[in-house]
């Protein structure tokens, strides 16, 4: 599958961290990428150097990639489809009688 490694040393690679940056006060943190670092503090430093060299953010989160549990794309339909037939959750489902305002 991958290119063969021929790796030497075999030391444990530094863990992977996912980086989230809040661009400005009032916005949510957004995933911007990932990086390797031995611990959280260094991950934060590297994230500052790597992802905010041009004042792209006012706050950074780093999360160990291994701590993230993701839904599987294979189960996407079974997982999310139950929401598909519940159109009544949207206001547009309901008919508003003519002339009714502020609804």
């Amino acid at each position: 599958m991958n290119e063969p490694t021929g790796q030497r040393g075999g030391r444990e690679p530094a863990p992977l961290w996912e980086v989230f940056v809040r661009a400005r006060r009032g916005l949510s943190h957004t995933h911007v990428g990932s990086l390797h670092a031995p611990d959280a503090e260094l991950a934060l430093h590297h994230a500052r150097d790597l992802y905010t060299r041009r004042q792209e953010g006012v706050s950074i989160w780093v999360v160990p990639a291994g701590a993230i549990t993701a839904s599987s794309p294979d189960e996407k339909d079974a997982f999310f489809d139950p929401a598909a037939d519940k159109v009544y959750r949207h206001p547009t489902f309901y008919e508003v009688p003519d002339g009714v305002a502020h609804l």
Partner: peptide, 24 residues
Amino acid sequence: AGHGLYLYAAAETLGVSRDELVDL
């Protein structure tokens, strides 16, 4: 340097490790 790191991280999402890439 940053460009290299963004790109290594993108390659890693395809299932190759950073150490392998550096070694290549």
